[in-house]
């Protein structure tokens, strides 16, 4: 089973995780959060107002 999970071919080139890009992404995320800390989240673009009492 372990062999199956490992895959059944040998890569032509050595594959390594791109740690630097991960770091860069985390750094960007941190900086972005500093920049948008004045913002609320926004996902729904159809409903302007909703009241649970009216359901």
């Amino acid at each position: 089973m372990t062999d199956l999970l490992r895959g059944n071919f040998t890569p032509e080139h050595k594959v390594e995780a791109d740690e630097l890009k991960q770091d860069e992404r985390a750094a960007f995320r941190k900086r972005a959060l500093e920049s948008i800390s004045g913002s609320m989240v926004f996902v729904d673009d159809k409903l302007l107002y909703w009241d649970l009492q009216n359901e």
């Binding site: 004045g38 913002s39 609320m40 926004f42 996902v43 729904d44 409903l47 107002y49 909703w50 649970l52």
Partner: peptide, 29 residues
Amino acid sequence: LVDNPALPGSLTRRIAWITGLPSLNTGGT
């Protein structure tokens, strides 16, 4: 109003349930 309250796991619905308040879309700002 941060997401669609009709969807499962909606954060908007949860906040409304906690607070009893009506929800207003903010558009992010």
